[in-house]
Structure formats: C-alpha cells, structure tokens
Amino acid sequence: MSARLSEVDRQAFRQGLRDYSPTLMAIFSWGLVTGIAMSKSVLTLPQALGMSIAVYAGSSQLAVLPLFAAKLPIWTILLTAAMVNTRFVIFSAGLAPHFSYLPLWRRLLLGYFNGDIIYLLFQKKSFPTGFQPGKEAYFWGMAVASWTSWQVSSVIGILLASLFPDNWGLELAGTLVLLPLMVSAIVTRSTAVAVGIAGVVSLLAFDLPYRLALPLAVITAIVAGSITDSIVERADLRRIRQRAGDSR
C-alpha cells in the first residue's frame, strides 16, 4: 500500500503520525478506562469487543453502559448516544469542504475514523478546501495512530480489567493529558468565548437526562462564537473606517 502512495502522501502520512503522537498517552488512557468499564458492565466479552470496534466512540460508550445495566428501552440508549455524539455533526460539516470530491464510501470511512483530536489538529493545519496532495494522507496518519492506540488499550482494558484498581484515576489522567492541547487551540477571542460559555452551560446542565448537557454546550458554544466573530468584525470595520476618515 505504501508503494502506491506518492512521496508527498508518504510524507504527509508520517507528519500526521508525528502530529498526533503527543496525544497517544491520553487516547490510550481513555481507551483503557472504556475497556475496563465495558468489562465490568453487563456486556459479555464478545459484546464488549464488538462495541469497541464497531462504535469507536468512548464518550457515548461510557454514557450508555449504565442504561444497559438499568435495562432501559433501546430508544433511550440510542437517544443518549446520539446526544453525546452530536458534536460529530459539526466535525463532519467542517471536513465536508475538504473531502466532498471523494466517493460516498470513502467519506463514510473518514467519518468513522474522525475524532475530537483528529479534527482539532486537522483544522489547525489550515488546509485549503478541495483537493490538495497529501491532505487525505495527513488525515489517515492521525486516524491510524488514534484507532490503533484506542483499540489496543480498549482490548487490554476488556481482557485485563481485574488487574486495574478503580482508584488509579486513569480517566482523570487522560483528561489532564488532553488539557494542554485543548488550551493551545484557543487562539482567538471568539474561541475563548465559545469555550467559556460551553463550560458554564455544561456545568449548569450536568444533571439533565440523556446527556443533554453536551449537545447544549456545543450549540451554545457555536452561537456564542458566531456572535463574538460578528462583533469583532464590526469593531474592526469601524476602526478601518475611522482610520480612513482620519487620513483624509
């Protein structure tokens, strides 16, 4: 497969691997936590392994495990998973201009392998939209690193759950490792406002059913960021007009 790729694609693939590598510890930790949680839930071993491979979405997997244990209706479980994964609609919309030229099956494949950190790092590269040599290969470099790390750690957690004490705090460790990357993404005023609003909303709505706090935080963050962008643009326009008037 590597021999079929151009030199540009090979370099981009390796760059994707390198750019994603600082997050591997956090992804491994989250995968381990999710695997342990699935193993200690009502799922059988084949069900847990199947869920890890087919779903590949740690937040929604952790969200629905208590619902399985409570034997709630399937629509409740599906609704909760959908609410948790609402953010992927935003991610898909963000990637669409970059890969719209690809056939449907390849776009669906990209959607399966996409994730929070992959999307963040991809957007930080500021690729032009449309086809560009190496762009898809860069995405796949990150995707392969993420998927492999997640599945390996998740399977380890599923098979060896009894060896990991609950007081190790692996979930917190994974979150702490990701924080510097998240903070580094706050580079504009609108992003800072969106993050702040999302944090407040998620805390206020934490106890809502079906994990509604997450989609509410996403929606309010988008609205807050858009409003802030509009305000900043208007302020910049006023300053430009004022300078033009002063120069006269």
Rank of each mutant, 00 (worst) to 15 (best):
S230E: 12
P46R: 05
V42C: 13
R238V: 03
V200W: 03
I118Q: 15
S52C: 06
F99K: 01
L179P: 08
W30C: 04
R18Q: 14
A93W: 00
M1T: 02
F13W: 15
R10T: 04
V144Q: 08
G130P: 08
S2G: 00
L176N: 07
W168H: 11
L104E: 11
S6F: 06
T44L: 00
A221C: 09
Q47F: 07
S100E: 00
A82L: 12
D207G: 04
Y20M: 13
A205W: 00
K135N: 08
Q61M: 03
I227K: 02
A224T: 05
W168K: 09
S149Q: 01
G169V: 04
G16I: 05
S226M: 09
V195N: 01
S146A: 13
A93T: 06
S21Q: 04
S247C: 08
G199P: 04
L208P: 02
A12D: 11
A3T: 09
V144W: 07
R14S: 09
A81W: 11
A213N: 11
P46Q: 04
Q123P: 07
T129P: 01
E233Y: 14
L172C: 07
G111F: 08
W30E: 02
F127V: 08
G58D: 00
G94F: 14
T191E: 12
W140M: 10
Y210R: 00
A26N: 07
E136G: 01
M1S: 12
S21F: 13
S230I: 13
A221E: 05
G115E: 06
W30P: 01
V183W: 14
V144F: 14
F164L: 07
A81L: 06
D19S: 13
A96N: 13
L67Y: 10
V8A: 15
L104T: 15
G174H: 09
L160F: 13
P133Y: 05
A213G: 04
R189S: 11
L170T: 10
M1G: 14
I240R: 08
K125I: 08
K71V: 04
S226T: 11
A145G: 12
T191C: 06
V8T: 15
G94C: 15
R4L: 12
T80R: 03
Q132Y: 13
